[in-house]
Design a protein around this nucleic acid. Structure first.
Lengths: 370, 370
DNA sequence: CCTTAGCACTCTCATACCGCGAGTGCTAAA
DNA sequence: TTTAGCACTCGCGGTATGAGAGTGCTAAGG
């Protein structure tokens, strides 16, 4: 019961986890001695495995099957056993190059980040668009599409853009629109949603002398756009790499019928998680509030449907101004060192890119070794 | 051999197709007489089924299994047998309402169209963004994000917007940027990509007196943005409804081991088709060049990986100006009448919405009954 | 000539059973 | 404390078996 973690036990736990992560088959005592040239017999290893099982780090699906790490085992591995690695220079270079090719196109960063995370970690990925806790208005442009249709382009701090068309009651000249946009831009500059709301409810008279119906209509539009935008941005989780994750053995059924069935069911569940962000919801705010790379393993999730999955998350961007979350999601049997270093690298990279874009305090351009 | 299609055979073919589409199990002679109260015996039906099989409209997986339509059978059904239906008024109203709620946000139309198609047809859907064959430049805005970063917002005819950031060599005042954007807008107004290219290669001197390095840099940026945008727009296929399609029985494995395996394999394939648009590519230009609803059934596809799927497609938007393609994709055993009426309705709706947006000739607002 | 009852035949699907091989747990000895 | 030896467990693939569903054919009847 009160067994202690000797050096040897730590080592065995470590190689069991590594072995299982690599092969996806329960690991047997005999093969450990063979493969790792341990200086003691399989019987000894079996004893040690039994102790590690008592300690809660390993299990046994069935009496005659090899050992498999428990969630606690993975946790211990991540916390104490694994060595902290980085992506190879070549990989880092390649990734940087890909981001360089879409420089200037923020929308594509998210997509690219998702794709790169997925491919590098061979699992699914999730990325939320970079957002300020509260959007701050910067600029408004009104562009006439035709007589009865106007395109409003709202620009927010951090280079975030939202477009919306509307049809004003009365036709306006391009010059007119420009003037109107300029006036409103001046009025709303640097305000958050709630400040804009305050402005139109409390200080309406302050605007009234200058603005007519049209201007008020536009301000209403802007307010509404900001509200919905902020709201839907909060929930929006971009996910990718479904195919990569499905190439994991967990989703490839063996020839036995009920395993195939389970694989299909797993697959369907995974799809639902990624599609609607089901089960991921609670993680985002939590990740936004933390520093560094977060790892949530299997049963540690608050949601039941996530019990078989682990998530590796990190915040990116500049706290307080423009931030998002990105990460990797996959079966608990995940190459944690690899996932963690991938997430760490991509989040630094995105942070640096956003830093360039955003006027505020920029972190120093991160180093490769990070 | 030279059997003819009597009235009775047509009817039997029709109910076989309908029955198989509904139940997804091979249809037996006995059950047809029972379920449809046919005035003749199952033996007679068996004879008729055999003739229909000779004619190539039905098959038989195995000697002792019921009949299943062939691709030709589905084709004949779609062409001659099925009755043309429309979505119910209630459904139409609900869909219109959803589109109303995202009025003004073109990006969301595509997403919504995909979701609605999928849910209504209970299959996967695909939507390409509405695009002109050739983008026509309309307007450029340059907005300073901070000293060394400028946001360029390119507006094209049809209300299409592309945003791109860049960092000019020299800092520019907001006023300066505005003037520059105005000049370039004037110069490039109404031009297509190739016309812009012509302008900068052949008539460079015509611009030169007015423009400095900065202006030329911006024009290069615009050109590049237009090129890549047009290119990537051409390939971009938005897909949705994977989950809906996967709820079709084809993807739900029965308890037998090899069927489960096949289901998983099918699933993986389907994923690849939807993810990268593999197999869908050739359909898009074809659909863009046609009027009305297109149906491509199983083996009629040019691509092998599509042999088990049918696609129902329609163009939407105003030909020659801004158009896209949308449709439904699912197993060949598809509720064709339903899919076709869904696609028809959504494409009319999108056409009408785009008509409002785009200044050119608008179709009359379509009627419910359409 | 078309229809139909009857029946043999085929094939799938589910279940049970068997034997093998992998791997453990335990015991007893070094 | 380690380890060799061994019995025991269990999953897995293969095969046999039986039931059920549905067809194809044949021969009789309208």
């Amino acid at each position: 019961m009160a067994a202690t973690l000797t050096e040897r036990r730590l080592f065995i736990l470590k190689i069991v986890v590594q072995e299982f992560v690599e092969t996806a088959t329960p690991v047997a005592s005999e093969m450990l001695v063979r493969k790792y040239g341990l200086g003691f017999s399989s019987a000894t290893v079996r004893n040690e495995l039994a102790t590690l099982e008592d300690l809660g780090y390993l299990t046994h699906l069935h009496t005659s099957a090899g050992r498999v790490p428990t969630d606690a085992g993975y946790r211990f591995f991540v916390e104490n056993l694994m060595e902290r690695t980085s992506l190879s220079m070549a990989e880092q270079r390649m990734i940087r190059h890909q981001f360089y090719q879409v420089r200037g196109e923020l929308d594509q960063w998210i997509q690219l980040a998702g794709a790169v995370l997925a491919r590098t970690a061979q699992n699914a990925s999730l990325v939320t668009p970079p957002r300020a806790e509260h959007l701050r208005f910067k600029n408004l442009e009104l562009i006439s599409i035709h007589e009865t249709m106007v395109l409003a382009v709202l620009v927010f701090h951090g280079g975030i853009v939202k477009q919306q068309t509307f049809s004003p009651d009365t036709a306006r000249s391009a010059e007119d629109l420009r003037r109107c946009a300029g006036q409103i831009s001046d009025q709303l500059a640097d305000l958050t949603v709630s400040q804009v709301e305050d402005l139109i409810t409390h200080d309406a008279q302050q605007l009234a002398p200058l603005f007519g119906d049209f201007e008020h209509g536009v301000i209403d539009l802007v307010t509404h756009a900001m509200q919905t935008f902020e709201e839907q941005a909060r929930e929006q989780i971009h996910s990718d790499g479904l195919l990569e994750m499905l190439s994991q053995p967990e989703f490839i059924p063996s020839l036995t019928r009920d395993d195939a069935e389970r694989a299909v069911e797993r697959l369907r569940r995974a799809l639902e998680i990624l599609k609607n962000g089901r089960g991921l919801g609670p993680l985002i705010p939590q990740a936004l509030a933390s520093e560094g790379v977060q790892v949530i393993i299997g049963g540690e999730h608050s949601e039941d449907e996530m019990r078989e999955y682990s998530v590796v998350l990190a915040r990116y961007g500049v706290g307080g101004t423009v931030t998002g979350v990105l990460g990797v999601i996959g079966p608990t049997r995940m190459a944690y060192p690899r996932s963690i270093s991938t997430v760490r690298y991509i989040s630094s990279l995105m942070t640096s890119l956003l830093g360039d874009l955003y006027a505020g305090e920029t972190r120093p351009p991160f180093e490769d070794g990070l």
